[in-house]
Design a protein around this nucleic acid. Structure first.
Length: 222
DNA sequence: GCCCAGGTGGGTA
DNA sequence: TACCCACATGGG
């Protein structure tokens, strides 16, 4: 399985090249982006991030000065703006109260308890927590998402109803805990999901994974 | 007009 | 525990 997963990685890298994730200028911006991109296209997130930056509140202290009601209109383009405004507030409140508003204090934690701590924050679920661990904290946490589930279920490696932890285990149990590898692998899977392995992809003819992809249109294995 | 997008939390059986 | 649903804008 290790060889299979690395082969898939190599094919995706050959097809798409390095993806340069995460698109964020600082660890805090990565965290904000991770919350704003929940079930949302990244292009919409960029607009919301630009609004926060223009308002000079794309910092822990900056967001802490605003109420959720004040944050909401700034992040409107990202969708679910009322819910996400509360999530951003929850994160900066947690950071202020538990870590003096300093991410470096948070990063002092070991990875496992850090993940549990992140999961305890309103609005941070498993994917967001792992995205923060990998792309903001530089920990070897493998991030899986809807694209990962679709791509790897079509390859026949997991069920299309596989849960987060079981899907993540496929990678964690067979790959070395290598941060640059985990970073690029997840980014490439997302890129592949957008380019080729879409929900209603009519054929897999141009798929760089086609030799190992069991997907056929209408077969119910989407 | 319809489908989709780098999920999560809360309510109900 | 396991579903089901609300949350919402913008691009193809």
């Amino acid at each position: 399985m290790r060889r299979r997963l690395l082969d898939i990685y190599e094919r995706l890298f050959a097809a798409y090249g390095p993806q340069g994730w995460w698109p964020g200028d600082s660890p805090f911006e990565v965290i904000v982006g991770a919350i704003l991109t929940q079930n949302t296209a990244w292009t919409n997130v960029e607009k919301a991030m630009a609004n926060l930056r223009a308002a000079h509140v794309l910092t822990p202290a900056g967001l802490l000065e605003l109420t959720a009601e004040e944050i909401a209109p700034l992040i409107r383009p990202a969708g679910y703006f009322n819910a996400k405004a509360r999530k951003l507030r929850a994160f900066v409140e947690f950071l202020a109260q538990g870590h003096g508003g300093d991410l470096n204090s948070l990063w002092a934690m070991e990875t496992a308890p850090l993940r549990e701590t992140l999961l305890g924050i309103h609005g941070v679920g498993p994917e967001t927590a792992d995205s923060i661990l990998l792309y903001a904290a530089g920990r070897p946490a493998f991030v899986v998402d809807a694209y990962t589930r679709r791509v790897f279920s079509r390859l026949g490696l997991v069920s299309d109803t596989v849960g987060y932890r079981d899907l993540q285990a496929l990678f964690v149990e067979h790959l070395p805990p290598d941060v640059p590898l985990f970073n690029e692998y997840h980014a490439l899977v997302v890129r592949h999901g957008k380019e080729c392995c879409r929900k209603r992809q009519p054929t897999c003819d141009v798929c760089p994974l086609r030799a190992g992809c069991a997907y056929t249109p209408g077969s119910g294995n989407a």
